[in-house]
Design a protein around this nucleic acid. Structure first.
Lengths: 352, 352
DNA sequence: TTGAAAGCGCTAACAG
DNA sequence: CTGTTAGCGCTTTCAA
């Protein structure tokens, strides 16, 4: 437990002032010889500048925060890997938090980050605008990934179905509660869902259900839009985020509506639940029920039949979000919408 | 972007000295009335003590670091969730890093953590003692989870009971480089593998292969021990950590030794690869080849047949490790070995 | 019980 | 080009 060398030690050992050391180490101007000497001494002393001192001085932490609902969900694992990759190449630390899709925990974590002076945050939000307003008001640069805080979407009835905040800005001349304006990186849920529904329709399916989870409201809206006018409300069900509740929702859906012939799962945890519930009820996939799931996770291919999925680039999403939050230097960066792709495998068949 | 209130602001507003505010907020002694006034003012000003100031003063960061190989691997997702759960209940931040099973990246991340003055670390190590010595020498409290740095295992002859590389040390009375002594939380790999091998043996299997990945040396050793004396070296193969290499290893194994009748996969990524490779080669599970995989991940049940697994408590492992690293106050905590459980599902059948 | 004061390690003026 | 100095926000002696 030896004490680390400080900038002062280096300065003394090199026979220069601390400022010079600081300059040399941060690429400032210095005579070649001074620079060399300082560098040598620093290396020799195994000096590592303390982020603590620097951060305090600059009143901000270098790194970024990352809030996801659940790391056990492979998609968020991919997202996190993307963020970490970008952060690593920037040499920045990442402070991680898992919200469990609980707004309260999310709030607490935001508070913790604030306390740490982490002023950049990438989040898959769970709470609504009210949860997020404090963070943004406190001057945090936040970038939302994968989804948007619910209230922000509801703001304008006109765009609600579209789920795209951008359009909104053009349409709403007078927003009542000025909502968050934070950039975001999300998948093109609308196109993804639409493609899936059309595919299912093309297979002859009429009664298509949507199985969603927390934060899937944009996907739900897209589903309603894709299905068209009178949506059978019983065919739109939600779980609360836990695997148990997802299973319960799926099982309940299959039992209450044995007439449905296809289901679109809003996320991989829900897809998993659907497969399990179907098996439990002796429903064969795809003979008895067709299944399309959001997220292309590695195990989708292992199922039998392999699952047809709406793939979204989790890793890219994380990487891009991290880029945005880091670049946020000047003006507010524009949001990003990433493409989805319907990967057809074996879990969908023609309507019997 | 308003500037946050500082302790000084609170002190002035409350008409007391900063020291008093500090005491009140950290539970020190103060007259009831003073305390109340300070608390009121603090709340009113929405004061949040800056971790930066505190940490600099105390020359350490509150939180802990967490290094895992890959968050896309569900098992490490579980582990991470456990760590986060414990950290949250302690109100401590977690700085995350993903090593990609690359010792070099691991080293860099350790350096980054050192720079951040993060002095507590939970790690699923990839590098050997040489990689880790610097961290420990720098005074970091590190707890290893899931596996141990390869060299470190050589440390204690007494613990040779675990029966892997340790045996070697019995032979080497004078350890040259005094290796790491850090506590750890690992699963009882030896028992887990032994149980699986016995189960397979009971089913009549003679040619059992081991498919491993980075850090699976303890499992490999356990496998060799369980199988007994002359291990067929062609039946022990390793991937390098990526899904591709795992697939290549599995595929190569099946092709080079069509006579094998069962395989034990050292981790879920390898299990995944085995399933894929078997399918590609038209090997039916379990008719043509039986499969047991380490890690009970949610999708193990989705496969068909559902996979028989050696379950290890990933979440608990993370939680326990976090507890250890936090409690490390006094004497060096003892290491922990968690039990494994063979969960029999449908991927193993009698030897044909 | 309380306040004043001394830094923790660093950077950013500001002089020389 | 370089050194001196003044803090960043906080905890912690040390007196009062």
């Amino acid at each position: 437990m030896e004490k680390r060398a400080t900038i002062k030690d280096v300065a003394e050992a090199a026979g220069v002032g601390v400022a010079t050391v600081s300059r040399v180490l941060s690429g400032g101007s210095a005579s070649p010889e001074t620079r060399e000497r300082v560098l040598a001494v620093a290396a020799q002393l195994d000096y590592r500048p303390s982020a603590l001192g620097r951060n305090l001085r600059q009143r901000r932490t270098g790194g970024m925060g990352l809030l996801v609902p659940d790391l056990t969900d492979t998609f968020y694992g991919q997202l996190a890997e993307g963020v970490l990759a970008c952060a690593r190449s920037a040499g920045e630390p990442v402070v991680l938090g898992s919200t469990g899709d609980d707004p309260e925990q999310e709030s607490e974590l935001i508070g913790m980050l604030l306390e740490q002076s982490v002023d950049r945050l990438i989040a898959v939000p769970t709470g609504d605008s009210d949860t997020w307003a404090p963070a943004i008001r406190a001057g945090m640069t936040v970038v939302f990934a994968d989804r948007l805080p619910s209230q922000a979407v509801l703001e304008d009835p006109g765009a609600a179905a579209v789920g795209d905040l951008m359009l909104l800005d053009g349409l709403a001349p007078a927003p009542r509660a000025r909502p968050l304006d934070a950039p975001s990186v999300v998948a093109d849920d609308r196109a993804g869902i639409r493609t899936a529904v059309r595919y299912l329709r093309g297979l002859g399916h009429k009664r298509i259900a949507f199985l969603g989870g927390p934060g899937h409201d944009r996907r739900e809206a897209a589903f309603r839009e894709a299905v068209g006018a009178p949506v059978d409300e019983e065919l739109v069900v939600f779980g609360t985020g836990s695997r148990d509740s997802a299973y319960a929702a799926a099982s309940g859906l299959f039992q209450s509506r044995p007439d449905l012939s296809a289901v679109v799962a809003g996320g991989n945890v829900l897809g998993e639940a659907a497969v399990l519930a179907a098996r439990e009820l002796d429903l064969r996939v795809p003979q008895d029920v067709s299944l399309v799931m959001y997220d292309d996770v590695p195990w989708a291919e292992l199922c039998s039949p392999p699952l047809t999925v709406i793939a979204q680039p989790g890793r890219d999403m994380g990487y891009r979000a991290a880029e945005l939050v880091l670049r946020a230097g000047g003006r507010r960066p524009r949001s990003v919408v990433l493409p989805t792709e319907l990967i057809i495998r074996g879990s969908c068949g023609p309507h019997r």
